[in-house]
């Protein structure tokens, strides 16, 4: 690695035909201490589609999602075996900072920083050395527009982000994640803290966003998965039970367990 220059070279991201998997997990096992959370999950996640991951709480769906940008490493030392790929490259071998730039994440509860709206969205670009005023302005506007928040906040960019409503805060977090121009967006139950109207707005967003992005969304809300996703994967006790096109999963599931779960006859 030529450390003599101050900017690290990045592998040029190869072009991706939409039919190829952008993210792939192969026999992925994750254990915190003696507790195995994921027990060998294999799943291909295609580009420019919304993939929903459903399953009862504690099934490992959140951990599974977090593995794709390795944010799970923050919750303590985890033992990960198997393989996770981003565009065919081993994700565990990538530098986490670069990985997380390319694979953004939105959390369960909106977590805006206690800063202005502008500084929240500009946070990411600044991390990666964007300093020019016009570049930053552009990135902020771009992020906010894509998150359908621009019109609501364009006149008060200097206001504190804490003053926004819950739904606005969550869209701000989406804008913040989009401002670093990621290729994948991971969403961990992004609407669980929101009211139905705010939820609907976010679901609408997914349709627009998937033109540019690959989206993986964890949800416990069956209707949301049915409405907003193209593909659905059902996880149970750390194992993948079934995955496929959302329509198939919801109308004609291959396993009785899946049917039990989506029809609410579970546990």
């Amino acid at each position: 690695m030529p450390d003599s220059i101050l900017i690290e070279p990045v592998m040029e991201a190869p072009l991706h035909p939409t039919d190829r998997a952008r993210l792939r997990a192969e026999n992925l096992r994750v254990a915190y201490g003696p507790k195995e959370v994921l027990k060998g999950v294999s799943l291909d996640i295609p580009a420019n589609q919304v993939t929903a991951i459903i399953g009862p709480s504690g099934c490992g769906k959140s951990t599974f999602l977090k593995c794709f940008n390795r944010i799970h490493e923050l919750s303590g030392p985890a033992k990960v075996t198997g393989r996770i790929e981003l565009d065919g490259r081993d994700l565990m071998a990538m530098r986490e900072v670069e990985l997380r730039r390319r694979v953004g994440m939105v959390f369960q509860k909106p977590n805006p920083f206690p800063k202005s709206i502008y500084d929240n969205v500009a946070f990411g670009p600044r991390l990666f050395g964007v300093r020019g005023r016009s570049d930053l302005d552009g990135a902020v506007e771009d992020g906010l527009r894509k998150a359908a928040l621009w019109d609501e906040v364009k006149d008060r960019l200097a206001d504190s982000a804490q003053g926004l409503s819950g739904g606005q805060q969550q869209r701000l977090c989406i804008a913040r994640a989009l401002a670093v121009q990621p290729e994948v967006l991971l969403m961990d139950e992004p609407c669980s803290a929101l009211d139905p109207i705010a939820t609907a707005r976010i679901e609408e967003l997914l349709f627009d966003l998937k033109r540019e992005l690959t989206i993986v969304i964890v949800t416990h809300n069956m209707q949301q998965a049915a409405r907003a996703s193209d593909r659905t994967a059902f996880l149970w006790l750390g194992e993948l039970v079934e995955e496929g096109p959302t329509e198939t999963i919801f109308t004609n599931p291959g396993k009785p367990m899946t049917e039990d779960y989506i029809t609410g006859r579970f546990g």
Partner: peptide
């Protein structure tokens, strides 16, 4: 949309 030059900075790592 303008494509920004977003690359991890070695200075940040140092």
């Amino acid at each position: 949309m303008k494509k920004l030059d977003l690359r991890p900075r070695l200075s940040a790592r140092i």
